[in-house]
Design a protein around this nucleic acid. Structure first.
Length: 386
DNA sequence: CCTTAAGTAGCACGCCCTTA
DNA sequence: TAAGGGCGTGCTACTTAAGG
């Protein structure tokens, strides 16, 4: 990363990422003009510390004014390196390859307004030091929550949920629907409670009896008769809304191209899917993905069919019946480690098939990709046998 | 933070088959 | 018939995740 030198650079340039690598600094011309103008008015101020304090105070004064975005923009630019190094420190620790550095960087930098609010320029000596630790905390917290939400299925998520968060997630719907959803959710919680003591994250879908109980409870609460299917639809919708509200799609940084005038600031991170072209591309990509998914199914199903019957049985017990290795060992009268090893062997063989198949599509397969294929395979097995 | 359970992986060993 | 490779198994230390 090239070290930025001048004050205008420090307060108007942003890191650019391309395939998870920093490629260059790009200048936001609006911010560049702004800092030049201020420098011309105060040519004696050449210390970056002065300008950080200056923009931080402006930001506080400009509460709710459009100018506040400019001040936040200057500070975001200033904090680019701090943000990068904080995220860089965390990223190797995230076991999953799901989140790239650029994604995490984006999550962290979007927290600048929050950081500016929390850090009082009159009390703290250095915004940069404060921000460095705050960026780390923001990303860690985001990853933790994300992992938690990803691990839960709909029913687990609904059990965990607080009423307040559900209401927040349902904003935008009309009042009567919100009321219906909330009542349905309350009935679900009441009737599904026994399962709460078991594994919370992967709670099984309510059984027919539970659904009937929910229907009865709903009738008791509201006097209206609603079918189990409708209740299920409402509750699934609740879960989906909570999911997407917690983690809106993160889009690319929208950095202005050098020389381009109408650059947006990086704090606009919510994806607005309004372009027809984007939609068409997405549809095309989706078709392609579906096509590849069915090919993948075929490859893996054939591979499993070629396995020894005992191995097939093992996979069934493990993935379908959800037995532990210990339970399988007891049933098959072998040791747990034998089960473990046979499962590993089977996974290895499937992974090999998967890698060969993917190499036919894209011959350049690096170890990272193979690692991520392992995860895909595990996910596939879970789904295939469920 | 500690404990516990579940799962993984390295090393050693023995059996079986092939080869010289 | 001995050597050697491939493979399965046993033991055990280690890692990871969940719960108190």
């Amino acid at each position: 990363m090239r070290v930025r030198q001048s004050i205008p650079e420090l307060f108007s340039t942003f890191l650019r990422f391309e395939s998870d690598q920093i490629t260059s600094w790009s200048t936001d011309s609006r911010l560049h003009r702004s800092i030049q103008k201020h420098l011309a008015q105060m040519p004696e101020e050449t210390a970056d510390r002065f300008w950080v304090m200056y923009w931080h105070r402006c930001w506080r004064k400009e509460e709710a004014s459009p100018r506040q975005q400019i001040s936040a923009g200057h500070i975001s630019a200033y904090l680019q390196e701090a943000c990068y190094w904080s995220v860089q420190k965390i990223q190797p620790k995230t076991s999953s390859q799901q989140f790239q550095l650029a994604d995490l960087f984006q999550v962290a930098i979007a927290a600048v307004p929050k950081i500016l609010k929390a850090c009082d320029p009159d009390e703290r000596a250095s915004l940069k030091t404060y921000a460095s630790s705050a960026f780390g905390n923001v990303v860690r917290d985001w990853l933790r929550q994300r992992r938690e939400i990803d691990l839960c299925n709909h029913w687990g998520l609904l059990l965990k949920l607080s009423r307040k968060r559900l209401i927040e997630a349902l904003q935008g719907l009309d009042a009567s629907t919100i009321e219906q959803y909330l009542t349905a959710w309350k009935c679900f919680e009441l009737c599904y409670l026994p399962a709460k003591t078991l594994g919370m994250r992967q709670s099984a879908a309510p059984s027919a009896e539970v659904w009937n109980a929910i229907v009865t409870q709903y009738k008791k609460e509201t006097g209206e008769a609603v079918s189990p299917a409708t209740l299920e639809r409402w509750l699934t919708d609740c879960a989906n809304r909570v999911r997407s509200q917690s983690f809106p799609t993160v889009s690319s940084l929208n950095m202005p191209r050098p020389g381009q005038d109408d650059g947006e600031l990086q704090d606009e991170v919510i994806d607005s899917r309004d372009s027809l072209l984007t939609e068409l591309i997405e549809q095309e990509e989706q078709r392609e993905r579906q096509d590849q998914r069915s090919q993948l199914n075929q490859v893996l199903e054939t591979a499993i069919a070629e396995f020894d019957v005992s191995v097939q049985q093992l996979l069934q017990l493990y993935y379908q019946q959800q037995f532990t290795q210990q339970q399988i060992a007891k049933q098959l009268e072998v040791q747990q480690y034998t089960v473990s090893r046979k499962l590993s062997k089977a996974r290895e063989a499937l992974l090999l098939k998967l890698v060969r198949w993917s190499q036919a599509i894209n011959p350049a397969t690096d170890p990272e990709v193979i690692k991520s294929m392992g995860l895909v395979l595990e996910e596939w097995l879970q789904k295939h046998y469920s």
